[in-house]
């Protein structure tokens, strides 16, 4: 009876601890881990960021096994060197930066080099600057949500994003999928804000075209 009560009490305390740790700020988790190597704090950091880090690594490498290697390297680096985080930027920005570096290092070690094609001249208009005869016949904007947001459309868009050259893919991922500001993306990728905006603009034009082709074909 007494043992049962104690077990129940321990379980209640553990549950309360789990609930509370999810409310702790990143900075406090970092402080706890760097000062006392508190495993629960590190686990919570992994819980919060693992999908974002894996997703970003997958976007850069475009390969699940490579992404997992990078994912492991990022958290191993974090476990060893979290005290190197000085709090000068947001923790999430710092972590994305670590992921970019780990991804490039991994791809270099595997000799997986991607030719970075420029999309700077990519545009839907003709040499006279007109869209005449290029957009309307493929207009899919009034299609019902059930068609637009179907699983196949999401697969198509994922595929189209992965067709973007790497420098556009990373900007698009951080800006439009992760929802980061131009300033944050600029800091993470170490490029200027005009470069972020320019790459995002061309990436979106490219993806709009890909989706138009898809929905146009789908109607046939």
């Amino acid at each position: 009876m007494e043992i049962g009560f104690i077990k129940k009490l321990i379980s209640v305390i553990a549950t309360n601890d789990n609930e509370q740790i999810t409310r702790i700020s990143d900075d406090e988790l970092i402080r706890r881990y760097t000062q006392t190597r508190d495993e629960a704090s590190f686990d919570e950091i992994v819980n919060r960021y693992s999908d974002r880090i894996y997703g970003f690594a997958l976007r850069i490498t475009r390969n699940a096994s490579d992404a997992e290697e990078v994912f492991q390297e990022v958290f191993l680096t974090l476990a060893k060197k979290l005290d190197m985080f000085r709090g000068e930027s947001k923790f999430s920005s710092w972590l994305y930066r670590v992921t970019v570096n780990a991804s490039y290092m991994y791809l270099r070690s595997q000799k997986k080099h991607e030719n970075n094609i420029s999309l700077e001249n990519y545009s839907p208009y003709d040499e006279k600057g007109t869209l005449m005869g290029r957009i309307m016949y493929k207009d899919w904007s009034s299609r019902p949500d059930i068609i637009i947001f179907n699983k196949e459309a999401l697969i198509i868009i994922e595929k189209a994003i992965n067709e973007l050259p790497e420098s556009y893919r990373t900007v698009f991922h951080l800006s439009d999928i992760e929802g980061l500001s131009n300033e944050e993306v600029s800091e993470i990728l170490e490029i200027s804000i005009p470069a972020v905006k320019s790459r995002l603009h061309r990436a979106r034009l490219f993806l709009r075209d890909k989706l138009s082709d898809y929905f146009h074909e789908w109607r046939k």
Binding site: I135, K138, D139, W140, S141, S142, I148, F149, A153, L154, I157, I161, F172, D176, I177, R204, L207, R208, L211, S212
Partner: peptide, 10 residues
């Protein structure tokens, strides 16, 4: 219109 819809999808 299609640009806006594309942003909704992504």
């Amino acid at each position: 219109s299609t640009y806006r819809r594309m942003l909704e999808i992504t």
